[in-house]
Design a protein around this nucleic acid. Structure first.
Length: 526
RNA sequence: CGGGGCGUGGCGCAGUUUGGCAGCGCGCUUGCUUUGGGAGCAAGAGGUCGCCGGUUCGAAUCCGGCCGCCCCGACCA
């Protein structure tokens, strides 16, 4: 057996918190030891270390942090209360941001009639293989089949065609919070589930410039949300034609880097042009007396973000949540012997009230049936940013002991002015998580001048690989075949709203060595 | 879609090779003692061994079929 990853703050930890033995490490000859090993493995319910098996680690964290459980439906999970609470944090934050840009919420049907779904050729070609059909009611076959929506461009556009007559009706800025189904070949909790929760924004505009500005504005919203709420640094940019959304003219993306070196698309925004408007008949009479098609956008972010959160900040002890998304920001754990219980509990309740009054999402763990040590491990596993320990010693000193989840650092905080001190600490944790993730992304972003270098880096270390690209799809495909890495995006040079992407910068195309038109980011992706 | 693995109390597994009482740890219940890094002792409850069929005196175990889930590779938020 191997001791848990050494941590500076837990000198006693190694003997208690064991990891499951690797095959061959168990000494089968000694019955007692085997028995002990079995007991401890089950008892401690270890999380597989990231270095041993990243995907097992991920699954362990999802299940053991109580975020989700596998449902008895292929590829589907149950979002358990703690996982759902994280989604609610994300929803609240995004919803506020959307509304600040003039977007309103609405809700459209889950079912889309086949005739409507089939109208946009590229769109149906992209999604048809993975849509489930509703064909019967009871035993009776329906006259027209319905798809369970994989996304709602067609049905929303159909409604827009009825609602929009004049340029005075524009822009239409609507968002929908809902669920969609995509029957993916390969599923994974949060990252790719058959049914997932998301928001999809759908807007209609008078001209391309207005729609394009909206597309990039929403990408900027996603980028800011990722940075400020999730503490996840991202690269914002535009997708190649090969990677863009089925039916879009241009797709913008924010790409995050997971700690295993793989990229994750964390949000997308599409300029749809007039393609959907043409087949769905979304037209308006412009000021010049001309009947024109609207220019549309759509943009979405999903429960996949929870997967990103896990893989960007998590460690071998489990989840690490940035304070701003954390359902519980500080957990108060009373400690000390039985005879002091009443005093300590009362003080703990006082601490809870004070934290709540200071606007901290605080929770008091006053369960009698678990020991403090058990609670410490439990709340660390669940990623709570701050643990507040309070016992007789702290009472005597007029302090509360604060333990940081991100660094393990423990500090005695004066009982006086505790609320603001904790709020300050939470802010520090938020910043330091972002900085750490930012450093990781920077350190794992490397240049490659040619295919050999690119493949070498991808094979050895993954991460983002920055290269020149001539703009030719054949060259892009060569990279994918040779290395398994895909072109994640052509990054913006500056803010997305400015709309300037990186040019060749004197680079040569990583495949054909012709002069590069763009500087692009490649990575293996989820 | 291809490849691999797994289905045995709530969870993790052993038992299957060589058919013969369904077991272990954790969890759960009750009681007592405990509580500053996953507490101890004692007594309990809990199982159509994924499903269907076959072989057999007898099947978790052998044979055939099916289903489900997970993991790994080509398409996707």
């Amino acid at each position: 057996m191997v001791p848990r990853e050494a941590t500076p703050f837990a000198p006693w930890g190694g003997g208690v918190f064991r990891l499951s033995p690797r095959p061959g490490e168990e000494d089968g000859s000694m019955a007692h030891e085997a028995h002990e090993a079995a007991r401890e493995r089950a008892y401690v319910k270890a999380i597989t270390p990231r270095s041993e098996d990243y995907s097992a680690w991920y699954t362990d964290v999802v299940l053991r942090a109580d975020l989700a459980d596998y449902a008895p439906v292929r590829g589907c999970i149950v979002f358990k209360p703690y996982g759902y609470a994280i989604w609610e944090s994300i929803q609240q934050d995004l919803d506020r941001r959307f509304k600040a840009t003039g977007v309103q919420n609405a809700y459209f049907p889950l079912l889309i009639p086949e005739s409507i779904f089939r109208k946009e050729a590229e769109h149906i070609e992209g999604f048809a293989p993975e849509v489930p059909w509703v064909t019967h009611v009871g035993e009776e076959q329906l006259a027209e089949r319905y798809v369970v929506r994989p996304t709602s461009e067609t049905i929303i556009g159909t409604m827009y065609a009825r609602w929009i007559q004049s340029y005075r009706d524009l822009p239409v800025l609507i968002n929908q919070w809902g669920n969609v189904l995509r029957w993916e070949k390969r599923t994974s909790p949060f990252l790719r589930t058959t049914e997932f929760l998301w928001q999809e924004g759908h807007t209609a505009h008078r001209d391309e410039a207005d729609a394009e500005a909206r597309t990039r504005l929403m990408l900027e919203v996603y980028r800011d949300m990722a940075h400020e709420l999730l503490a996840i640094p991202v690269v914002a940019g535009v997708k190649s034609d090969l990677e863009k959304f089925a039916g879009a003219v241009r797709t913008y993306t924010i790409e995050a880097l997971m700690t295993d070196g793989r990229a994750l698309q964390a949000g997308t925004s599409h300029y749809l042009g007039t393609g959907f408007a043409e087949v769905l008949g979304i037209r308006f009479l412009d000021a010049d007396g001309q009947l024109k098609h609207v220019h549309q956008t759509s943009w979405g972010a999903s429960t996949r973000l929870i997967g990103a959160l896990i893989m960007v900040h998590g460690d071998d002890r489990g989840l690490v949540l940035p304070p701003r998304v954390a359902p519980i920001q500080a957990v108060v754990v009373p400690v000390g012997p039985q005879r002091e219980r009443a005093r300590v509990l009362e003080a703990a309740r006082g601490v809870l009230r004070e934290l709540q009054a200071a606007g901290v999402r605080a929770h008091l763990d006053d369960r009698e049936e678990y020991s403090p040590g058990w609670k410490f491990n439990e709340w660390e596993l669940r990623g709570v940013p701050l643990r507040m320990e309070i016992g007789p010693r702290d009472l005597a000193r007029g302090e509360v002991l604060a333990a940081r989840r991100d660094s393990g650092e423990k500090t005695g905080l004066a009982r006086e002015g505790l609320g603001s001190a904790v709020a300050g600490l939470l802010a520090t944790i938020q910043t330091s998580l972002f900085d750490r993730a930012r450093r990781f992304m920077d350190e794992n972003t490397r240049e490659a001048a040619n295919l050999g270098e690119l493949k070498g880096t991808i094979d050895a270390r993954r991460g983002f690989v920055v290269s020149g690209w001539c703009g030719n799809q054949a060259c892009e495909l060569r990279v994918r075949e040779a290395s398994g890495a895909s072109l994640r995006c052509i990054p913006f040079d500056g803010a997305p709203s400015e709309g300037r992407t990186l040019e060749g910068g004197g680079r040569r195309c990583v495949t054909c060595a012709e002069e590069a038109r763009h500087t692009v980011v490649f990575a293996r992706a989820y």
